[in-house]
């Protein structure tokens, strides 16, 4: 077997094994979107009127509207967590181990990204299953069609996490990333409200939401769930993924030395 494939399988397997051993992380990752779905959305359905916008062909409940956004939320939290755990859990040792492999560094980072994405996607499916049990109806084929969208969006957000983990030198806790990355990305997107709704209240907010890559990731997932392809969303998500990935590779470049530690 080629060393590339061997290392890819090992890195993905390790991420999976670690995940199985961290049941709290799995439960936390599931509870978060479920609270939004079952509590937040239930309260908001009365207050928010939604018109029929693509990809929907009929009136939908607010719960149905936010499902793709909550899928995105799982990918967003996981993407940040898995990469930032490198810094946060003082896991630098195992990252160093990874980086002393004779395989090219970009490949090793890519493997780790793929491993983290696989775990994220599995969690999204667990969430979709529970949402289904609570009566969120999606086209059956949508569950299949959404897979590539989840992978692309997961890679994009994981790459952002990886880039941040190389650039942020000292991370005291997760709160900083929550405040400055996760919350703005999530709230300034189409996850909770459609963009036209944003435009009604503030054109500036609408514009910010429209350039947020997370919006495009969520829209890609939303359209895929309804067996539709949103080409601009796909283009922006892929572009953002490539950009974040390049930033991550730059951050982990030994000559750039952003992972330099004090001697």
């Amino acid at each position: 077997m080629s060393p590339y494939l061997t290392s890819l399988i090992a890195i993905v397997k390790r991420e999976a094994l670690r995940f199985v051993h961290q049941r709290e992380r799995f439960i936390a990752a599931l509870v978060r979107p479920l609270v939004w779905l079952l509590v937040f959305a239930a309260g908001f359905r009365a207050a928010l009127g939604l018109s029929i916008i693509p990809p929907y062909q009929t009136y939908i409940t607010y719960e149905t509207y936010i499902v793709p956004g909550l899928c995105g939320m799982i990918l967003l939290f996981n993407g940040m967590q898995s990469s930032l755990s490198l810094v946060y859990d003082r896991e630098m040792g195992s990252m160093r181990l990874l980086l002393t492999s004779p395989l090219p560094r970009w490949w090793l980072l890519l493997c780790r990204l793929i491993g983290a994405t696989v775990i994220s996607v599995l969690q999204v499916y667990a969430f979709l299953l529970i949402a289904y049990l609570f009566g969120i109806d999606l086209p059956p084929m949508g569950y299949v069609a959404v897979l590539p969208a989840l992978i692309i969006c997961g890679v994009m957000l994981g790459a952002l996490g990886l880039a941040l983990s190389s650039i942020i030198k000292q991370l005291e806790n997760f709160a900083g990333v929550m405040n400055f990355v996760i919350f703005p990305m999530f709230f300034l997107s189409s996850a909770l409200y459609p963009l036209w709704k944003m435009a009604e209240s503030s054109p500036l907010l609408h514009d910010i939401c429209a350039v947020n890559p997370f919006t495009h990731g969520v829209e890609l997932i939303r359209f895929a769930l309804y067996l539709d392809l949103n080409l601009p969303a796909l283009g922006w998500t892929v572009l953002a993924a490539v950009g974040f990935l390049m930033l991550a590779m730059w951050g982990y470049d030994p000559a750039r030395g952003l992972i330099r530690r004090k001697g």
């Binding site: 080629s2 590339y4 061997t6 890195i11 004779p102 395989l103």
Partner: peptide
């Protein structure tokens, strides 16, 4: 095994 795989050694 994980480390061996990082060096392309498996099975």
């Amino acid at each position: 095994r994980y480390f061996a795989a990082l060096h392309g050694i498996s099975g």
